[in-house]
Write a protein that binds this DNA or RNA. Sequence first.
RNA 1: GCCGAAGUGGCGGAAUUGGUAGACGCGCUGGACUCAAAAUCCAGUCUGGCUCACACCAGGUGCCGGUUCGAGUCCGGCCUUCGGUACCA
Length: 822
Amino acid sequence: MRYPFSEIESKWQKYWEENKIYKTNLSKTDNKLYALVMFIYPSGAKLHCGHWYNYGPTDSWARYKKLKGFNVFEPMGYDAFGLPAENYAIKTGIHPFDSTMTNINDIRQQLKKMGCMYDWNSELMTCVPHYYRWNQWLFLQLYKKGLAYRKNAPVNWCPKDQTVLANEQVQSDGTCERCGTVVIQKNLTQWFFKITDYAEELLEGLNKINWPEKTKTMQRNWIGKSTGTEVKFKVENSEEIITVFTTRPDTLFGVTYVVIAPEHPLVDKLTAKEYKEKVAAYRDSIKSLTEIERTSTVKEKTGVPIGAFAINPVNGERVPIWIADYALLTYGTGCVMAVPAHDERDFEFATKFNLPIRKVIIENGTKADERLESAFTEAGEMINSGSFNGLNSDDGIEKISDYLEQKNLGKRKTNYRLRDWLISRQRYWGTPIPIIHCPKCGEVPVDEKDLPVELPYDVEFNPSGESPLASNKNFMNVKCPKCGSDAKRDPDTMDTFVDSSWYYFRYLDPNYYDTIFDTSLAEKWTPVDMYVGGAEHATMHLLYARFIHKFLRDIHYANSDEPFTNLIHQGTITNQGAKMSKSKGNVVNPDEFTVEFGSDVFRLYLMFMGPYELGGDWSDKGIAGTDRFVQRTCELFSRFPKILEAVQLKSKFEISLLNSEEKSVYRKINQTIKKFDEEINNFRFNTAIAALMELLNELNKNIEKCSKEIQAYTLERYGVLLAPVAPHLAEECLQIIGRGESIFKNAEWFEPDAEALIEDVVNIAVQINGKLRTTIQLPMNSEQNEVKNAVFSDEKVIKNLDGKQVVKEIFVKNKIYNIVVR
RNA sequence: GCCGAAGUGGCGGAAUUGGUAGACGCGCUGGACUCAAAAUCCAGUCUGGCUCACACCAGGUGCCGGUUCGAGUCCGGCCUUCGGUACCA
């Protein structure tokens, strides 16, 4: 008989729900374990294999921990705001709220069919006022501390659609995803969160969390800490000062020109009359080309001189000032001292424009007057550097910095690549920004007691050149809270990464009304112990959440420094080499498989495919293997109905009293417990399941020849091992053999019998000159002399040693005996 | 360009601190059951050589070299694939 998965899965899902098996008692906090998977974006595409791959195995890990005795909290919710719902509305006319709600209802049903142990009491969605009002509250707290501010920033603008585009809506050739028009940059006044204030702590904190090294490296690079020195250059015939940032003050004597970012305000002040025209033309040229050229291949550097000259503070030399697009306004001071001899970019630029290249550091073994073929960027001996000549350049960095600081010509400075977080979105489907713009008072924050600023239902989504909310007069027109005069709301909404940067607190009580979340629960349950989600969030969500967590700590809402103690990235499941996406039409629908094989089989298959962190290309070849495993398991248990009731259950057997099949089975079940435990604990699901398969093979071979006591002992343990990875099947199997209640109601985990883990005999590999010649079977822990006797009396060894001289013998207990001959 | 990860049978993939390469599964081949097929069960399955067969021999973890009694694992140099990043001074 085939395992009737459909009946059995719904039977147990119903049982779990009715008996509230997965409702976590949050007041019990000893042994708490917060297991979290990144919440789901409820798009119309429903659950795909990638979701399953993320949620199924993570749930198995959480179940394993529950059986191990942890009080596990595993919630699920919906990251419900966002651009795709709005784009869908533009295309179909269906309101984002309506489509999102429909999707959530569908997805909830799909999620429930997976059979995860989510605590549905904690379900949340971000698009409802009682969630997003706390985004607004959070905004106001940041605002109060000066960490939310407004400034001009460029956005991607499609001139045809008259709309702002997110970066991912701009194609690689710089055109609009929808209409193919070339996207331009437009400046708008927008809101920022000052994440840069936390740059150093965000960097330092990485040392304290157990995250994948590569993710931490990505965050480190993203934060991009760089220590150097700011140096002041006077400008000839001007009162202005150009301050440059350099990590190589040791090369200061090699400066042959200075570069300023084209958009830098100093440019207007310094440009000589006869250069104004050329400078203006250059600035125009890069404005229109930036986005296309940035994304194209390696761009050749461009620039023009502005007809002004800077004075090198250490040698008084007069060097030309240029503007060039390789100087970025947004990094450092926006000004660069150019040392072509020792910087690749400057070298390239100087070569192109025929600017002088002066060596001030020589590479060991080269001569001072040798021509440079490329920039020499490493350390060496300083030359042409006045009193600093002869120093090693590493010392020179310190000495020149000291000199500059003493003479008040510069000072040491640390810079970060990290930029502030732009949170304004000129979109409808998001959290309204709780700010009122008053013609008299300027920007006025909405009073906390007036939150939430509700997102109105009626707006015009079709792109009109401004934020959709601006079309709703009832929403936009308000009285200024300060002076009472006519004022307008901010028409923008927040980046949805704001929603996801604190949702793990809210899960603990999603209906909490008094504050952003229940802080007393948060103190006990955060940080999240295990967080599982895609690596694509490395420098966005995972950085923003760390920032907001630290901010909440600073305003005394959280008592920890980091949100996620442990982090695991599941790999990506691709299809025909490409990421699954609706637009590529390569999405694999999991229902295909769950309908045919059941959710346990599908979950098992996803786990068995390969290492969890690697993912892989989708293939359904092999799902038959996990299906067979489930069938054979069910069949095995069916042969032993109520066996647990028929015998006196023992927790340990004396191995020496067992017959050989019993010994073999007893050893195997205990070895499997040990192996499975280690593997699943470390998210190595593929090998955990392989161990169960080995066990099943052993049982099918030998269990019939065992006593009823051994059979009961083994099957009960096997059933419990199955429970994390195939929960419905395990519940059913345990019920068949007569275990009373749900294993997840009365959590239990068996420890292996240490004595059963030890074999009495081992195979020892016999090598001659490192080549395997034979293996011999000997008692466990045989000493070298015993092994030696056996080895040298072995026929094959004798044959192979014939006429040769033994030089050396290497013995590794229970493993190897290697004879070195000449 | 830079940073990171990975290259093992026909396929997905296993291999503690260097110590019997290919666990487990798919697929394939042969057999049993069946009127037949499916399903199921049993056996075989890294490659080459030799053998009726058992056995035996040689080679083998992307490529080249090194360390070692012994390397998939460590070191140096390449090649390929996949992620991340884009002039950060």
